[in-house]
Amino acid sequence: MEIDVLTFGQITDIIKETKLKISGAENTDELIKLLENNYPALQSNKYSIAVNKKIIQENTQLQHQDTVAILPPFSGG
């Protein structure tokens, strides 16, 4: 199972890619753990998670080809 991960703002500065493919994560908790292991600087950053453009509040099951966005605090306007 493969997930598309999108990064923005400060998170892109850490991960150095705007889009990456991750396999081996069944749900968002597993995905975050995997990302935080690979990019420890993520742990000290605030971010929220959107699965297929919807912000989630709790661990969410992932399907093949879901898009998970790692969103730092918004600062538009």
Binding site: F8, G9, Q10, A50, A69, L71, P72, P73, F74, S75, G76, G77
Partner: peptide
């Protein structure tokens, strides 16, 4: 818009350094 729309602002300084804006 400020709370819910995924837009990010990067402040660029006169010396060309930058930092991410916080609302």
């Amino acid at each position: 818009i400020k709370k819910e729309v995924p837009v990010w602002g990067k402040e660029i300084f006169t010396n060309e350094n930058s930092q991410w804006k916080t609302n």
